[in-house]
Nucleic acid binder design. Structure first.
Length: 347
DNA sequence: AAGACGGGGAA
DNA sequence: TTCCCAGTCTT
């Protein structure tokens, strides 16, 4: 049996029972694939169930508001996925009459759908012979065939895409793709792969040459920026002052407390002396409480976050600032750091 | 071609 | 800590 067929055989015996594997509905497949981008199955699963329950069809999704979608997406990260889904759902509703496309050529044009997702939906929903190349596939192919081209270089991506399509079982593209990914996720794992029970280890370059830990090769030059966030907690009875973030930074269009960002970690007293703080303060504003510094880790940034509770405020809020009832906070899409703090603080 | 974009789980 | 997850978009 050749390599792809061995994996297919392995898949039939070892696959997980996942809800999106019981449907051919392109909309449902799309929902699962977007949620699973850069996201573990266990983390995405509850979101998939909630989204499908709230938006059973793409028409239901298209009728949602961005606030609603982001609120449902809260905690999953990479929020542009949620915003792009709404754009795509509305386009599918308008241009395709609410019928989600399942051909690669149509899918690749949609917002939030790249090469991987187009191949996934086209093969799972349309039975189109397109090989998926995700993190699992990169790893499995790099190890088995001993490919040391960086998976995140332009040339490397081309090499792996070509190989993946050569291997593709064109009679069973959906099962083939599922098998490749499942094998990478469950057996040929990044760390401590289960080579001891691997059905294809005899043909595996990395197993034979003891290169499991060096393959796949990935160029990594991640620059991490430090940022210092001072959040102001301003309450007026059972109202709390909130701010809607704009585009061009993390957490686009999500909600936070009034923020004063500083170039370095500062004492709260000095933060309040800054010009940026003036619009929130009056002569009789006093500091009520100061939180410890919370470190919040993002992929490209480390946030050092402090919450400063104030008594009294100055102006009627304008623009993107507004007071909202505390009990309605749960309807806003909040970054995790804000959500966790407020959940604790308000209870 | 490189950088930005979240959050969490595993080792 | 470090890695990386059923990647995509922007510059």
């Amino acid at each position: 049996m050749d390599f792809p067929n061995e994996l297919l055989h392995w898949y039939h015996q070892n696959k997980r029972d996942l809800p999106w594997r019981h449907t051919n509905d392109a909309y449902v497949i799309w929902l699962s694939e977007i949620i699973l981008q850069q996201t573990r199955v266990e983390q995405g699963l509850p979101y998939f169930n909630r989204f499908l329950e709230k938006y059973p069809t793409v028409s239901d999704f298209a009728a949602a508001t961005e606030d609603e979608v982001l609120n449902l997406w809260q905690g999953l990260g990479y929020y542009s996925r949620g915003r792009n889904m709404l754009i795509t759902a509305r386009l599918v509703q308008e241009q395709y009459g609410g019928v989600f496309p399942s051909s690669w050529e149509q899918l690749i044009k949609l917002k939030g759908i790249g090469e991987y997702t187009a191949a996934a939906i086209a093969s799972f929903a349309g039975n189109e012979p397109r090989a998926v190349v995700d993190g699992n596939v990169y790893r499995v192919l790099a190890r088995y065939f001993g490919i040391d081209e960086p998976i995140n270089s332009t040339q490397g991506a081309k090499t792996f895409r070509k190989l993946a399509n050569e291997l593709l079982n064109r009679n069973e593209p959906a099962l083939h793709n599922q098998a490749m990914m499942e094998f990478g996720a469950l057996l040929c794992k990044p760390k401590n792969p289960a080579c001891g029970i691997c059905p294809v280890r005899e043909g595996c370059y990395a197993f034979k040459h003891n290169a499991i830990t060096t393959l796949p090769v990935k160029l990594n030059k991640l620059k991490i920026r430090k940022r210092f966030f001072n959040y102001l907690l301003i309450k007026d009875g059972d109202l709390i002052l909130m701010h809607k973030r704009g585009a061009g930074d993390i957490w686009t269009n999500m909600y936070q407390l009034p923020l004063i960002e500083t170039a370095e970690l500062m004492e709260p007293h000095h933060v309040l002396d800054l010009p940026a703080a003036k619009s929130f303060l009056s002569e009789n504003t006093s500091v009520k409480a100061i939180s410890a510094v919370h470190k919040h880790v993002l992929t490209h940034q480390h946030l050092y976050v402090r919450f400063i509770e104030l008594d009294g405020f100055k102006n009627k809020p304008t623009g993107d600032f507004f007071f909202i009832e505390v009990k309605k906070i749960k309807n806003l899409a909040l970054p995790q750091i804000i959500f966790i703090f407020l959940t604790k603080f308000l209870n």
